[in-house]
Write a protein that binds this DNA or RNA. Structure first.
Length: 141
DNA sequence: GTTCTAACA
DNA sequence: TGTTAGCA
């Protein structure tokens, strides 16, 4: 289970940024970030004794999403709404991919992703791989 | 040098 | 929302 430890060591949850860094990476001013936080659109963590904000990866992504919609001339409130919906979808996508990912196996010169049992009786296993056009092909065995 | 809060020619 | 002031 060394793989698991390695994955956890680089888990995005471990990445935190200060307001200046987030501002530069997202092109959102510190003033805006503080305001958005005050309104509850984003959240920062304040270490027990540390007086400065730190944003985790999740909130960094949220800022990027809000900015993405603002740049398309949506109002702030609409951007927030759209960003929250996207966040939920991205989060669900992440959870599902993690849950179905059972490693890779080599077959016929291809690298197949083992997606676990396909049926409730746990007799058929689902595999998938990317073909040349970028689409996923499936295999059940 | 950076971040914080509060306030506004 | 930008900017500035005065701190920590």
């Amino acid at each position: 289970m060394e793989d698991k430890k390695f994955i956890e060591s680089l888990n995005e949850k471990n990445y935190i940024f200060r307001i200046g860094e987030v501002s530069k990476m997202t092109d959102v001013s510190p003033r805006q970030l503080r305001y958005w936080e005050q309104k509850g659109y984003i959240h920062s963590v304040r270490s027990e004794k540390m007086a400065t904000r730190v944003f985790d990866h999740k909130n960094f992504v949220m800022v990027k999403l809000i900015k993405f919609y603002l740049d398309q001339d949506y109002s702030l409130t609409v951007s927030i709404s759209k960003a929250r919906k996207r966040m939920a979808e991205v989060s669900l996508t992440h959870d599902m991919v993690i849950a179905m990912h059972h490693g890779f196996v080599e077959k016929d010169g291809k690298t197949l992703m083992d997606m676990g049992y396909f049926d409730d009786k746990k007799q058929k296993r689902l595999y998938g791989y990317l073909n040349d056009d970028g689409h996923v092909s499936y295999l059940v065995e």
